[in-house]
């Protein structure tokens, strides 16, 4: 899977979980600050990432600042693939 496919898939997952269609437009906005992600959605996202990519990330493995934007989420998955 190349970077753009990964990005596309991550955006799909976040849109699915949050119902916010515009998350794909701004890849560097802080999703927690914008109230797009919260603790519950973050957990759903970690579970969805495990399902979709087979990458398991424990809830305390990353600080919020390490996965608070679409680009950072993609980077964290790419590191583990």
């Amino acid at each position: 899977m190349d970077k753009s496919q990964l990005l596309e898939r991550v955006i799909e997952l976040v849109v699915d979980i949050t119902g916010e269609d515009e998350v794909g437009e701004e890849l560097d906005i802080d999703l927690f600050e914008e109230e797009i992600l919260d603790s519950m959605a973050a957990i759903e996202l970690l579970l969805a990432i495990e399902d979709a990519f087979g990458v398991s990330i424990a809830p305390t493995e990353l600080e919020r600042e390490e996965m608070n934007t679409i680009n950072k989420i993609v980077a964290r998955i790419a590191e583990r693939l």
Binding site: S39, M40, A42, I43, E44, L46, L47, P59, T60
Partner: peptide, 20 residues
């Protein structure tokens, strides 16, 4: 981190409740 998120992950993966 150690109660709410763990409980939610468990409940979601086991589909304990109808909605998030």
């Amino acid at each position: 981190d150690f109660v709410f998120m763990r409980f939610s992950a468990f409940a979601l993966s086991k589909k304990l409740f109808s909605s998030r």
